[in-house]
């Protein structure tokens, strides 16, 4: 499925389209990993994590971006969210 979307994005919008699709996956991933800890339907996990990814992630990046480079704040937000997911997972298992 991912391949179908990637090919479509590249075919219609070129490299920028493919990179946007990969970008959406990247900012969505921490939330999907987080929701994976809960007993939820697959569809819920996908839809909810996309909605959270394209909203919460940019909001945090914007706030950090007031203090530092927007690009660096993107990286820090991504790493922080992924770390938080692993901390949550560890905490939940215990």
């Amino acid at each position: 499925m991912i391949l179908v979307i990637l090919i479509f994005s590249f075919a219609i919008f070129g490299m920028a389209g493919a990179r946007v699709f990969i970008g959406i996956i990247l900012i969505t991933m921490p939330f999907f990993l987080f929701l994976n800890n809960f007993d939820m339907a697959e569809g819920e996990k996908y839809v909810f994590s996309i909605l959270l990814g394209v909203t919460i992630f940019p909001s945090l990046t914007y706030i950090l971006g007031l203090l530092m480079s927007f690009r660096i704040s993107m990286v820090i937000t991504l790493i922080t969210l992924i770390l938080l997911v692993f901390v949550f997972k560890k905490f939940k298992i215990r």
Binding site: S9, F13, G14, M15, A16, G17, R19, V20, I22, G23, I24, L26, I27, V54, T55, F57, P58, S59, T61, Y62, G65, F70, R71, M74
Partner: peptide, 28 residues
């Protein structure tokens, strides 16, 4: 609130171009 616009900005960074990523992300 900058939530929506920051998501467009993120895609411009990911997309590596100025126009297509913002308009594509908006369409999505």
């Amino acid at each position: 609130a900058p939530t929506f616009h920051a998501s467009l900005g993120l895609m411009q960074v990911f997309g590596g171009q100025r126009i297509v990523p913002i308009f594509l992300m908006n369409a999505i």
